[in-house]
Amino acid sequence: MSQQSLEQRFQGLPATVRQKVDAVIDDAKVALKVRVGELLADKDEVAEHAVTTAGRVGAKSGEVSELTAIMPLKPGGAERLRKFFKLVDGNLAGAGDVGTLHNMRFVFLDGDTKLLFATAYDGEWDPYIDDFATKIPEMMDHLFGNVEGWPGIHSPEVKDFIVQYQLPAEAWFVAHPNLTVAGATRLKRLDRTVQSFLTELN
């Protein structure tokens, strides 16, 4: 698209949107300004992906929340964790038992002295921490026991401990904000049923 028609598209946006865009990214290429401006002007799209708070720390979009934490590792902690991850080939399949977990990852930082833990999950973790602790306490303590100062999953201080190392995401996007893990499971079942019905119909 020509520079001129991009300029026209930008001028076609509501004045309030143009002012907002100009105030923050005046120096950006007009193509980017159009893209951001059109996004901001699309009220339905913006509302569907609105970012709220997941509790004390963390962002939430629809039903899906994020948790990002960087925690100091005990000496040798990274080595022990690596051995464990190797044992299961980096596959944490059993975590599906939790029922609200979309994904999670473990990354070592700063020459194996720190652990980055990042996850996306449904709802709020605060009310469910005891449930996770009761469901997979040995796993939680085995993994996080390598973190300096880990109080133990049953400790009343464990929530405060995690919050202390949590870093709030400044931006958060989820493709289907209102699709929970349980909802996706239900849709998969529904699709199987519909597909087999259609197959038999033929």
């Binding site: 039903e63 449904d122 009310p127 209102n178 929970t180």
Partner: peptide
């Protein structure tokens, strides 16, 4: 109070995510 009464009120009474119907 939090884990029993408030949890049940918030998650089981006034939500449906725990049974897959948010």
């Amino acid at each position: 109070l939090a884990r029993q009464f408030e949890f049940v009120q918030a998650q089981w009474v006034n939500d449906g995510k725990f049974i897959g119907v948010p």
